[in-house]
Amino acid sequence: MDRNEKENENMIEAILFYTPRWLWKSWEGGKIHALMMDLDVGVCSEIEKKQKKKLMIDYLWENLRYHNWWAYKYYFCELLSLINVIGQMFLMNRFFDGAFLMFGFEVIAFINSDQEDRIDPMIQIFPRMTKCTFYKFGVSGDMEKHDAMCILPLNVVNEKIYIFLWFWFIILAILTFFTVIYRIIIIFSPRMRVYLLRMRYRLVRKDAIDLIVRRSKMGDWFLFYMLGENVDSVIFRDVLQELANKLARHNFHHIPGFKGEIQEA
């Protein structure tokens, strides 16, 4: 692989790493930021706070059960990130003519081996010394060839960079894999969604969370979870409680022990 091919491959890798983020930013469309309405700090007048909470509740109520596709796009970006990391390792392996996939394991084995039996894999991939051939004009005016040994100090830096990249790719692949498994469990397990909301938002009544998850879909749960991470906890508690009350009133019931403070217009 010549230098131009390597530069092109590095550019492709950079673009591929950025693609999942770019896709999600395009698909998300600023929904979370728009729904936050500066309620992440909770420092505003009571009248303004009630108005903003009512707007958020109205949106959640009117668009309940319509967020699945939005959430699946996010999950797709996470799956794409996993495919991307694994694909990057194979691209890097091609870049190093098949020496990258096992590079980290070989370095670990080298560190743990005896001094007499050590074969440094880093030197094999990034040689620190090589033979150089120089051509120059001699005294007679003819071209003369000179062979010498050249030191490549930049390869000392390169080997450390790619050792770090190898371990970084492995860590990213493992974490992203477990994230994808976690998402699959969330998609197929309403009980897990209830449990996560209860653990994350302890200020919200358990029966309110049960009702919300039971009457909504997975995409709604994902939106609730994302909003809860970006909105003041007390404000978000009121939002979920009032949403649960609206769901209960829709079924001619009411959650005991809570009186909604936000009145409909």
Results as ranks from 00 to 15, higher is better:
residue 2 D to V: 07
residue 3 R to Y: 04
residue 5 E to Q: 15
residue 12 I to V: 13
residue 18 Y to E: 14
residue 22 W to H: 13
residue 22 W to L: 14
residue 25 K to G: 14
residue 25 K to Y: 07
residue 28 E to G: 02
residue 29 G to L: 14
residue 34 A to F: 07
residue 38 D to E: 11
residue 42 G to M: 03
residue 44 C to W: 01
residue 46 E to K: 15
residue 47 I to C: 10
residue 48 E to C: 04
residue 49 K to N: 11
residue 50 K to Q: 11
residue 51 Q to T: 12
residue 51 Q to C: 06
residue 58 D to G: 02
residue 61 W to A: 06
residue 62 E to H: 07
residue 81 S to V: 03
residue 87 G to N: 06
residue 88 Q to H: 03
residue 91 L to A: 07
residue 94 R to L: 03
residue 96 F to H: 05
residue 97 D to V: 07
residue 98 G to Y: 09
residue 102 M to Q: 12
residue 103 F to S: 12
residue 105 F to W: 15
residue 108 I to P: 00
residue 114 D to Q: 14
residue 114 D to L: 08
residue 115 Q to W: 01
residue 118 R to Q: 10
residue 119 I to Y: 10
residue 121 P to F: 01
residue 123 I to M: 09
residue 123 I to C: 08
residue 124 Q to W: 05
residue 128 R to T: 14
residue 129 M to A: 04
residue 133 T to D: 02
residue 140 S to W: 00
residue 144 E to H: 05
residue 145 K to I: 09
residue 147 D to G: 05
residue 149 M to W: 01
residue 156 V to H: 13
residue 158 N to C: 14
residue 159 E to I: 04
residue 165 L to N: 14
residue 170 I to T: 12
residue 170 I to P: 04
residue 170 I to M: 08
residue 173 A to E: 03
residue 175 L to I: 13
residue 178 F to R: 09
residue 179 T to G: 15
residue 179 T to W: 12
residue 180 V to A: 15
residue 189 S to W: 00
residue 191 R to S: 12
residue 191 R to K: 10
residue 195 Y to D: 09
residue 199 M to P: 04
residue 201 Y to T: 09
residue 204 V to D: 08
residue 209 I to M: 02
residue 209 I to A: 00
residue 212 I to W: 05
residue 214 R to F: 03
residue 214 R to Y: 03
residue 217 K to I: 02
residue 221 W to T: 06
residue 225 Y to F: 08
residue 226 M to S: 08
residue 227 L to A: 05
residue 230 N to G: 01
residue 232 D to P: 14
residue 232 D to V: 13
residue 236 F to Q: 04
residue 237 R to L: 02
residue 238 D to S: 08
residue 241 Q to K: 05
residue 242 E to A: 12
residue 242 E to H: 13
residue 244 A to V: 12
residue 245 N to F: 02
residue 247 L to C: 07
residue 247 L to E: 10
residue 251 N to W: 00
residue 253 H to V: 10
residue 254 H to R: 11
residue 255 I to Q: 06
residue 256 P to K: 01
residue 259 K to N: 10
residue 260 G to S: 12
residue 260 G to E: 06
residue 260 G to N: 04
residue 263 Q to A: 11
residue 264 E to C: 11
